[in-house]
Amino acid sequence: MKTQEELTEIVRDHFSDMGEIATLYVQVYESSLESLVGGVIFEDGRHYTFVYENEDLVYE
């Protein structure tokens, strides 16, 4: 089982391919040991929310 830090790094690596990240945040109250819920804001102003669970990243 991966730690929350490892899950965060996986998500950061994925989004870094889309541009320069200004902020990546995790909603700790919605996340667990198996899933990571949060959002990412890019330097150009784009903002996505995401759920990473079971090695699957869903964002909008």
Rank of each mutant, 00 (worst) to 15 (best):
T23W: 11
Y29G: 06
F42H: 00
R12P: 01
K2G: 05
Y59S: 05
D56P: 02
E30M: 12
L7T: 03
F42R: 00
V51G: 03
L33D: 09
F15M: 07
H14C: 08
T3A: 05
V51R: 15
I10L: 11
D17S: 14
E20N: 14
V58R: 14
G19E: 02
T49V: 08
Q27L: 15
V28A: 13
F42T: 02
L36I: 12
Y25R: 03
H14L: 13
S35Q: 12
V28H: 13
G39T: 10
T8N: 05
G38Q: 01
F15L: 06
L33E: 10
H47C: 07
M18I: 08
I10Y: 09
I10K: 09
E55R: 09
Y29M: 06
Y29T: 06
E43K: 15
L57H: 02
T49P: 03
D44A: 02
N54C: 08
V51L: 09
T3P: 05
G39V: 12
G45N: 04
S16L: 10
I21L: 06
V37Q: 10
V40D: 00
G45S: 04
L24Q: 01
N54P: 05
D44L: 02
E34K: 09
G38A: 01
A22V: 13
L36Q: 01
G39F: 14
Y52M: 06
T49F: 08
K2I: 05
I21C: 03
D44G: 04
Y25G: 01
S32P: 07
T49A: 07
E43Y: 12
D56H: 15
E53K: 15
E6C: 07
V40C: 05
T3W: 05
G38V: 03
I21K: 01
Y59A: 05
E60I: 15
V37W: 11
E6D: 09
F15N: 01
S32I: 11
Y52K: 02
E30F: 06
G45V: 01
G19L: 02
F15G: 00
S16A: 12
Y52R: 02
Y52T: 02
V28S: 12
V58I: 12
E6F: 08
S16T: 10
H14Y: 11
S32E: 11
R12C: 06
E60S: 15
N54Y: 08
V40P: 00
L33S: 12
Y25T: 05
E30A: 10
T23P: 01
G38F: 03
G45M: 04
Y48V: 05
Q27M: 14
T49L: 10
S32D: 11
S35T: 12
G39E: 12
E53S: 15
E30C: 12
I21R: 01
G45W: 03
H14M: 15
D44C: 03
Y25L: 04
V40M: 02
V58K: 15
F42S: 00
H14P: 01
M18N: 03
T23S: 09
F42Q: 00
L7D: 01
E55D: 13
E43F: 13
V40G: 00
D56K: 15
F50E: 00
K2D: 04
T8S: 09
Q27T: 12
L7I: 12
E60C: 13
F50D: 00
D13L: 14
E55K: 14
L36A: 04
Y29F: 10
H14W: 12
E5A: 14
V58H: 13
E43R: 15
S16Q: 10
M18V: 05
S16P: 02
H14F: 15
L33G: 11
D44K: 01
G38N: 00
L36W: 05
Y59E: 03
E60M: 14
E20H: 13
V11F: 03
D17N: 13
N54D: 08
R12M: 09
F15R: 01
V58D: 07
I21A: 01
Y48S: 00
T49I: 10
G38C: 03
G38L: 03
L36F: 07
Y25A: 03
D44M: 02
E6Y: 08
E43P: 04
L7R: 04
V40Q: 00
I41W: 08
L36E: 00
E9T: 11
L36C: 04
T8Q: 08
Y48L: 07
T49D: 03
E55I: 05
L33M: 13
L33Y: 11
L36V: 06
E9L: 13
G38W: 03
Y52G: 00
E5V: 09
E53T: 12
E20S: 12
G19T: 02
H47D: 02
I10V: 08
G19I: 02
D17P: 13
E34P: 14
T49M: 08
L7W: 04
M18R: 05
L57T: 04
I21V: 07
Y25Q: 04
D13C: 12
S32T: 12
L36K: 00
V26P: 01
V11L: 07
Q4M: 14
E60L: 11
V26L: 07
E30K: 13
I21D: 01
L7A: 04
E60W: 15
V40Y: 01
N54V: 05
E34T: 11
D44S: 04
Q27A: 12
Y29C: 07
V11I: 09
